[in-house]
Design a protein around this nucleic acid. Structure first.
Length: 275
DNA sequence: CCAAGGCCTGAATG
DNA sequence: ACATTCAGGCCTT
């Protein structure tokens, strides 16, 4: 089955990708990726990444998550939609910035951060700015980060970077933990609550049972009358955890994929493009 | 453990 | 034009 490159890139997982002609270019941590029509990924550093998670057995995953007509419909509508495997540090900072914000602003903040603080490199005849590493952000002045438009999240961004720089948060080590262990570790970062943590787990740490619950998902889940409770606009951390358990019981170990399909369908049905 | 309020910012709404 | 609201939450009371 072919991967929908554009659809996957524009599904709210990544924010530093741009299309030029037939080719998509994206910043992925200290690397630049290019993806053409063929779907083949080229890397500035020559790394063989599985950015589109081609090794996922979609047949098995689809069978596993198809627990009702709604997911089946969503999955059938976006056969090429994939969860991406992006750089964890960039993902962490991206979703700290995402809180109480929107796609456009997130893109703008991250673009400013990379342009102002990231290393410039040339790749396939073009110039790109890499994502600033933890050292660079940790050592930035308050004004420097604030100037990128992140507002009150500036302190979170800087402190998160310091945790990584000082080794208090070992992102690669977290990959080896299971969902709950990884969740606990990421939750220790300031500015990271359950939703942001689930995004980081799902989009960069390979935890396919992570199921980010934002306002949109809660809205969608309301249609599962009775099965999933919440009638409130916001939920507490405890409610979040309980609901996550129910969702994994229901959708299974690849629940995160169910989330992506449902989320995409909901956004499309409400004409929320991603620019 | 839970509810309520505040928070940077800019685009959208009144 | 100007004020308010709201957006893919989190933290503190």
């Amino acid at each position: 089955m072919n991967i929908d490159v554009e659809g996957s890139i524009n599904s709210g997982q990544v924010f530093l990708w741009n299309k030029c002609g037939d080719t998509w270019h994206g910043i992925n941590g200290q690397d630049v990726l290019a993806v053409g029509r063929s779907g083949r990924v080229r890397s500035y550093r020559g790394i063989r990444t599985d950015f589109f998670r081609r090794r996922d057995d979609m047949g098995r995953i689809l069978e596993s998550i198809s627990r009702d007509g709604r997911v089946r419909r969503a999955a059938g509508r976006y056969p090429g939609l994939r969860i991406l495997d992006q750089d964890p540090f960039q993902c962490l900072i991206s979703f700290i910035i995402s809180s109480n914000s929107n796609i456009q602003k997130i893109r703008s903040c991250l673009a400013k951060m990379t342009e102002r603080m990231g290393e410039k490199v040339e790749f396939e005849g073009r110039m790109f700015s890499l994502f600033p590493d933890a050292d660079r952000i940790a050592g930035a002045t308050a004004g420097e980060i604030l100037g990128c438009g992140v507002g009150y999240r500036a302190r979170f961004v800087r402190d998160a970077a310091r945790m990584v720089r000082d080794g208090r948060l070992d992102i690669e080590g977290i990959k080896k933990k299971d969902y709950h262990g990884a969740m606990e570790a990421v939750l220790s970062v300031p500015g990271v609550g359950s939703k942001v943590a689930d995004c980081v787990l799902l989009f960069s740490l390979g935890k396919l049972d992570a199921f980010p619950l934002d306002r949109w998902m809660l809205r969608i889940l309301k249609r599962y009358r009775g099965r999933f409770m919440p009638d409130t606009k916001t939920i507490t951390k405890r409610q979040y955890g309980l609901l996550h358990e129910e969702l994994v019981d229901y959708f299974g170990p690849y629940a995160g994929y169910a989330q992506q399909f449902l989320f995409k369908m909901e956004r499309d049905d409400h004409q929320k493009g991603w620019l």
